[in-house]
């Protein structure tokens, strides 16, 4: 399997090859990979790629998955991209 042809983050078009290379280069946590590659920063907010990336990290680093994720990853609002005009206007029911 050619890892250059395997997409791991569909929103930001990041391949498995990109992720493996970045981990080799020392970007060894979800947060670092996110800042370096923009994985998980597209419209889905990481819902698709997060677990796949963590699995790759877990396999390469030989660490259990839960140990890679706890604490360091803080998810902040908004959970998905919303238009500014939606923030400007408050609806009243």
């Amino acid at each position: 399997m050619d890892d250059n042809k395997v997409i791991i983050c569909r929103c930001e078009d990041i391949t498995l090859h990109d992720v493996r290379g970045a981990i080799e280069d020392g970007y060894d946590s979800w947060d670092k990979l996110k800042r370096y590659l923009r994985i998980g920063m597209g419209p889905c907010g990481g819902k698709t790629c997060r677990l796949l990336v963590l699995r790759e990290l877990s396999a390469i680093k030989g660490k259990p998955l839960s140990a890679l994720y706890l604490r360091e990853n803080v998810i902040r609002p908004p959970l998905r991209s919303i238009p500014f005009k939606a923030l400007e206007k408050e609806a009243h029911l």
Binding site: P77, P78, L79, I82, P83, K85, A86, E90, A91
Partner: peptide
């Protein structure tokens, strides 16, 4: 509306594509 923000004081932000509700 999708709840896109949750804050620790029990306030939540729900947004549509055109406006929001707290």
């Amino acid at each position: 509306y999708e709840v896109v923000g949750a804050y620790r004081d029990g306030t939540y932000l729900a947004a549509s594509w055109s406006d929001h509700i707290t």
